[in-house]
Every structure is written in C-alpha cells, then in structure tokens.
Design a protein around this nucleic acid. Structure first.
Length: 803
RNA sequence: GCGGGUGUGGCGGAAUGGCAGACGCACCAGACUCAAAAUCUGGCGAGGGCGACCUCGUGUGGGUUCAAGUCCCACCACCCGCACCA
C-alpha cells in the first residue's frame, strides 16, 4: 500500500484474510465469553444504520474479548417465521420460504459489510426443519408436564393480523405488531402456564445484571400484590361471593360490592326485577372494545337487586355489576370501600352509595370527605383493628381474618398465562393430534418435526381458523396412540417460540439428537452479554426466561437464567422518528460504506452518542471520523520507519491512552472511547512533530487499541509496521500507573471559588510551598484583601477565601 | 393518574463536588493554491472593555458547601413505561 488511506482495497484485503484466518479461535485452553445480538427478522427492506449500532457494539465487545485472550462465541441467525413473509406470500403468491431465503441472502450480504466476527458455521434459522423440530420438542415436553393446556375464553383478537394475541402483544389495547385496535373474541386456544413461574421470574430478576428499567418493566408486568380473600354471604341465598382485596384493613368500610360482568354468579343472583337490566348491561360490556373498557374512566354499572353481608360489620352491601372490575384478576369480584379507594369513591358518588370512613388522617379528624383517602391514619369504626394505624392493620388483617375463619391471606399476580396458538400459516405447527378416542395426543419425538405442508392459500380467515385447517390431506392423520383416524392441530406457534431458546442452539447448532448437548451448554451458556433494543423488555426477554427455567426444571439446561448481562442500545432516529420505509427516513449503510469505508462507519456509529440513548442520525458527522482515520494513517506512515526512543512524555501519553480507552470500554461508554482516541492521537501527533519522530511502542499500542473498533485499518498498519499475522494476536495492553505520574503538575488557583491562574509545581511540593507560590502568582489580585481561609486539595486545587 | 428518565453553545455531546463546554460537526479567519477541493494553523457560550481583564452562564426558584451541571428541597418542560390489577 502507498501512503494514501485506500480503505476500499484495505477492507477487501482483510475480509479475505479473516476468511482464511479467523480472528476468533476456539481453544479450550482459553476462557470463554458468549456475546450475542438479538437475532434479526430478515425483512425485505434490509438493514439501516440503526441496525448497525447494536451489531457494531457487540462486535467491538467480542473483538476486545479476543484481544484479552478469550475464545468468543459470537453467532448470528434468523428469526424467520412471522407475518411479513406470510403477507408477502398472500400478495404475490410466493411461498414464504422463497421470499425468506431471498431476504436472508440480502441481509446477510449487508451484515458482511459490518465485518463482525460472526461464526457463520453456527448460523441458525428458526424456519429450518432441523431447528423447529426442537421448538416443537420443547412444546411437547411442556404439554407432558401440563404446562400447555387448551382453554376457551375471550381473547385479544387483532382484526388486521387475523389472529389472537398474547397479553404482552396487546398492551394499551393495540396490536404490538401492526398497531390495529384489538377486539375481544371468544376462542378456544392453547395456553402456556407461564404464571406457574411468576414467583421465580420475579425473584430471579435480582441476580441479573440488566438495566434497572427492564427489570422494573418485568416486575411491574408480573405485578405481584399481597392481600386477602374474603367471603361475603349473599342475603336470602345459600351462596357467597369471594372477593380479593389488598386493603383488608378497610373491611369495615366496605359498603357495597361489584362483580365483573363476566362473573359466574351475575346471572344467577340477579333478582327478577333487575334481571333484564343486568343482562342488558352485561351484553353491552361484552361488545365494548377492550380499549374503551380500559380508557373509559366514567363509571357505569347496574344493581343486581341482591345484598352481600359484610362479615365484620354485618351491614348489608348492595351487589352491583360494573365493567371496571376485571374478570380475570383476583376473583373477578371486589368489596368496595369508597372512603379509601378512588375508583370505589367515584362509583359511590355516581350511584349514591354510602361512604363510611374507617381511617382518620392525622390531624384532620373532622374534615368532610371530598375524595378517597388512601394514606395512613388511625383506624376507626373497626373494632377488630382498634388502636392500630391503617398500615399496621393492613399488614395484620389477613392473618386476623384467617384466624377468625373469615378469609385467607392471598397473593395475586397480574401476569396471565401465555396465549400461545396463532391462526396463521408461517409458524411452527403445534405437534398435537386430536383423536376421538384418546383425546389430545402429543406427536412422538421420533415423528418430529411436524412439517409445515405446502398450501394453496395463505389467506387467514376471520373465524379463528388457521389456513392449515383447509389442508385436508395434512389435517387427517392417524392417532399416534391408537392408530385410528385423527386430526392434526391446525394452529401454529407465535413468532416468540423460536426466539425463546435460540441462544441455546448456537452452542451446538448441528446436533440432531438433542436441542444442544449438556457439554456444549455447560461450555458456553448462559449468554454473558446480550445486546438488543428495549422493545423486547416484556416480550422476548420474559418468554426466553420462562423457557430457560422450564428447560432447567426438566434437566435439559444447567442454568435457570439465559442472559447474565443485558445491554439495550438506543434507537437511531432520523428527523425525530424511528427509521422506517413508510416514513421514507431510512439511511442505508451501503452508500456510507462505499464512501467512507466500514471502519469509519463502525466508529461513527459509536460516536453519535451514548450507546444506550436514542440518537438522531446526521450524515455529516462521519466526516470527522473519516478525517481521524486519515490522521492515524498519516501518523503511522510518517513515523513508522524513523522511530525514536520512548520518552517520559511519550510514555505518559501512551499509558494514559491505554487507561482511558480501557476504562471507558469496560464501562461501554463508547462515544467517549472515540473521543479518547481522537484526543490521544492528537497528542501523539503533536509530540511526534515536536521531537521529530515517535517510538514504535506508541504507534503499536494505538493500533492494538483501535483494532476492535476499526479492525481493517488496524490490521493493515500493523502489517505495514512489519508484523507477521494479525493484530488480534497482539494481546490487549496494560497501563503502568507509575508512568502517569508527572514531575510537574498544574494546579488551578481560585479566589472565592473563581478560577484565576494556574501554577506549575513539583508533584512532591509541600503544602506551604504550594500556598506560597499561589500567593505569589495571585499577588496583584490579593492586594488590599484579607485571606480568611486557605483551601488546598493536594494535586487538585487551591482556593483562597478573601474579604 | 402512577412509576422511571432527561434538560449543558448553532448542533451531537464531555465533565470521581474542584478551571463548564473535552471530542466531533457546522461556521469564521489565516497558511498552501492561479483558483477550488483536500490538508495545516488559529478562533468559535453571552455581554462589557483599546487592553491586561471583568461580569453573567448547565430548564426555573431556593438551599448546603471554601467550591455545585454534579448534593438537598420545591417547581416547569419534554420523553419513555404502566394504566380501573381492587
């Protein structure tokens, strides 16, 4: 190479070299590190500069680990089942397999442009039969353990995707994927008992090195609460209603009750006079969209005509029906304490129901209630809790009620079981057969995978039937148990199924006997560093934890948390919003790579801002990084053949650079790593000019440190300096703290906290000497003033307080 | 409504309680050039002063401290998450 930075030729050359001589070498004598990107959906529109951000970050970490002497598992694959391919199939009548293959080829080409050290021998694709065989195998185990069950219930239905959604996919009443308003549909679906793992999913968050935000989102989603279940007998019947409350301390103030419209007793207990009104109300509630039901804060409701008996006060509590009570939380029925609950208060006001305070706020004994009081205070009108504060009573009440046989201590979770089946074609078939004699039978392992058949039409239906249901040849099969005629389950799995365990498969991707061997799992997993966007905080990340815990319980994996450390990279926006084809604000990396090279784009991706923060993309900034790499090139080329001896100053700069880059890299503050490089390199250039050359160690150290970030130019210059082989064999340098101590240090001087002068003093100067020198330097400013106080922080600062 | 986060030049952003604005972009001036580009050198928060310098300045208002972007209290704005979970 000549003295010009010809990035295109250099990058091509080293990419070819790495094909033959991989940077990362598996060697069991080395410690292991597993660094994983959330694998992409191979979309037709390809990658944009936002995708690069996470991939560059994880590659820098991986290459850094290689330099530190680790063997690194850094794989890549495809989360390839899913609706876009299927919708494309409907539009063009191309089989999803075909379009998926084409998309993968394109995205893979784009990924190669990043020059990440992915091990493509371990590439996986969730739509490969050899892969989804094990996705089905895991489901079969869950079925056997009773964790998969079928249930008919009102479910979230996306009218646009024409399939059911899990709770996690329908937050805010909107489809997570397409944004359509979700409706309710009564359907029989396969569910996974993720709720059995609620407690462990919550508790084990503590052992994870994850962003607090994500842990909080998961614990909020799991939503554990402590309270009590209390029975209210229904007057004039032999029935009782069980309510769940987190405020059993307020039980004496329960003046009415509300059942959810779906509660089993509603129709049974409604009196003759009220029956029609109740039925009308329940019908209306059932047609209300889930969004309206969530967002309509205006209370509605209807009286059933019946009364419950407050088990403590013996007072009658009218029983109402209202849609503000959710059917599937707690018992679907509540006791209402309007004096101390905002929602109950609003309901009581609207329907003119009695309000009885049982907690007195401190010092406001006689104040009339204009809103619910939810704070602490003295218990009143509550013989059982006499003399307690509300907070005490809240803690003790469940046990007191339990002793009296009036209720029991209860814990509740917001987490619901996972609605697992989908009425679409492009997913893993659920490996079950419905036999008229044997019931639902799981497909035996030796018949897995249940392959997706070729269909005529991918068109989903509005009825909740999968397109597979029309495939009679496929649907009709024989029962694995009795051999008689039987029908296949026609629903498929959600896209989350394949991604809930893929990180395990990378450890042993070609194993056809097991999803991965215990040895391979033991060797590599769990994932040390997992890099991806925050959008999966309660979806993929929760499901993957659930799967891992299940596989741990059945002895398939030797750990019960899949991702030790999680890093959420920020999004890259353009014109203030997320890049998307429809907004027309997509910046493609392809042109930038062509114009500036992969190294420049890699470094710029890290330079745009703190990696965990969203950033606005600005093309012009990459010029700065490109100029920087040209300076590095010129520096090395100018001085590599005329080295001088290392000096105190060059050693200071070199060691400071190692320290700065290493500590910032360890903290993952990559934007400041890049500025550190720029600063250190400028110092080296200035010094080289000053002393007519620079020592080899300085240049070599710079190249090694740069290697994880800008590997091509680092390799090229490393070679040009006369080295055989890769810079990645050089090992990560260490700094010598002793070299960072300068004989002369600069101390800023302040008067009344304001910076005035700087003095240069010996590092060993005594306090008296420093202060004397400071006074001398500040003499003219101190004239006529009295020094009231002298502050000297050794090596840091001098401050005189004067009058 | 509840919970979490953020607020610093024209812009992206730096700052273990110790010289605010590192590093970069944009911009301005100078050098090189016939000229331009590239490159190099310097400047670049606001106001005042011929000048050495001075005053103000990190969303707002208070406080702690010799010293506050950083700590404490109150408030404002924006962003994110959850949202009738009893």
């Amino acid at each position: 190479m000549d003295a010009k930075y010809e990035f295109q030729a250099i990058e091509k050359k080293w990419r070819a070299y790495w094909e033959e001589h991989p940077v990362n070498v598996y060697d069991d004598k080395k410690p292991r590190y597993y660094c994983l990107d959330m694998f992409p959906y191979p979309s037709g529109s390809g990658l944009h500069v936002g995708h690069w951000r996470g991939y560059v970050l994880s590659d820098v970490i991986s290459r850094y680990k290689v330099l530190q002497g680790y063997q690194v598992l850094h794989p890549m694959g495809w989360d390839a089942f899913g609706l876009p391919a299927e919708n494309y199939a409907i539009k063009t009548n191309t089989h999803p397999e075909v379009s998926t293959r084409a998309n993968i080829a394109n995205v893979k080409r784009q990924l190669h442009e990043i020059s990440a050290i992915y091990d493509w021998d371990r590439e996986i694709n969730t739509t490969d039969k050899a892969y989804y065989k094990w996705t089905q195998w895991i489901f079969a185990r869950m079925f056997e353990k009773g964790l998969a069950y079928e249930k008919e219930m009102p479910l979230n239905w996306c009218p646009s995707c024409k399939c059911v959604l899990a709770n996690e996919e329908a937050t805010n009443g909107v489809c997570e994927r397409c944004g359509a308003t979700v409706t309710k549909k009564n359907l029989r679906q396969w569910m996974l008992r993720i709720t059995h793992y609620a407690e462990r999913l919550l508790n084990d968050l503590d052992k994870l090195n994850w962003p607090e935000k994500v842990k909080k989102m998961q614990s909020d989603w799991i939503g554990k609460s402590y309270g009590a279940e209390v029975d209210f007998k229904i007057k004039d019947t032999d029935k009782a209603i069980t309510v769940y409350t987190t405020r059993p301390d307020t039980l004496y103030g329960a003046t009415f009750m509300v059942l959810s419209p779906e509660h089993a007793l509603v129709k049974e207990i409604a009196t003759e006079e009220q029956k029609q009104a109740v039925e009308d109300y329940c019908f209306q509630a059932s047609t209300k969209s889930s969004v309206d039901r969530m967002t309509d804060k205006e209370k509605t409701g209807v009286f059933t005509g019946r009364y419950g008996i407050n088990p403590l006060s013996g007072d009658l509590a009218p029983i109402w029906v209202s849609d503000y009570v959710l059917a599937d939380y707690g018992t679907g029925a509540i006791m209402c304490v309007p004096a101390h609950d905002e929602r109950d208060f609003a309901f009581a006001k609207k329907f003119d129901l009695p309000i009885v305070p049982v907690i007195l706020p401190e010092g406001e004994e006689d104040k009339e209630l204009t809103e619910a009081y939810t704070g602490d205070g003295k218990m009143v009108n509550s013989p059982l809790f006499e003399g307690m504060t509300a907070f005490e009573a809240k803690k003790k009440a469940p046990l007191i009620l339990e002793e009296k046989g009036l209720g029991k201590k209860t814990v509740n979770y917001k987490l619901r079981d996972w609605v697992f089946s989908r009425q679409r074609y492009w997913g893993e078939p659920i490996p079950l057969v419905h036999c008229p004699h044997c019931g639902t039978v799981v497909v035996p392992d030796d018949q897995l995978p249940v392959e997706l058949p070729m269909v005529e039409s991918y068109q989903p239906t509005d009825t909740g039937e999968s397109p597979l249901a029309a495939m009679e040849d496929w649907v009709n099969t024989t029962c694995p148990k009795c051999g008689g005629p039987a029908k296949r389950e026609t629903n498929t799995m959600p896209q989350w199924a394949g991604s809930s365990w893929y990180f395990l498969r990378y450890t042993d991707p070609h194993n056809d006997k097991e999803l991965a061997s215990p040895e391979a799992l033991e060797q590599w997993a769990p994932v040390d560093m997992y890099v991806g966007g925050i959008e999966h905080a309660v979806l993929h990340l929760l499901y993957a934890r659930f799967y891992t815990k299940f596989l741990y319980d059945i002895g398939v994996v030797p750990f019960d948390e899949p991702f030790t450390t999680l890093f959420n990279q920020g999004m890259i926006n353009k014109n203030g919003s997320k890049m998307s084809k429809s907004k027309g604000n997509v910046v493609s990396p392809d042109e930038l790579v062509a114009k500036y090279g992969c190294d420049s784009l890699r470094m710029y991706e890290l330079f745009v801002g703190p990696p965990e923060v969203d950033s606005e993309w600005d093309d012009s900034g990459i010029d700065g990084v490109f100029r920087y790499l040209n300076k590095v090139w010129k520096l090395v080329y100018t001085y590599k053949d005329q080295p001088v001896e290392a000096t105190k100053k060059s050693e200071f700069i070199r060691n400071k650079m190692i320290k700065d880059i290493t500590t910032r890299l360890n903290a993952l503050t990559m934007n400041t790593v890049v500025s550190g490089f720029m600063e250190s390199t400028s110092e080296m250039i200035d010094l080289a000019k000053e002393q007519q050359g620079i020592d080899r160690a300085s240049l070599e150290t710079l190249l090694i440190l740069l290697a994880p970030f800008t590997p091509h130019i680092a390799e090229e210059l490393w070679q040009d300096m006369g080295h055989e082989g890769s810079v990645f064999a050089a090992g990560w340098p260490e700094w010598d703290e002793a070299k960072l101590v300068l004989d002369e240090i600069v101390i800023p001087l302040q008067i009344n906290g304001k910076a005035r002068e700087n003095i240069s003093i010996s590092k060993d100067a005594a306090k008296e000497e420093v202060l004397a020198k400071a006074k001398e330097a500040l003499a003219s400013r101190l004239e006529g003033k009295t020094i009231v106080k002298e502050i000297y922080v050794p090596g840091k600062i001098v401050n005189f307080v004067v009058k």
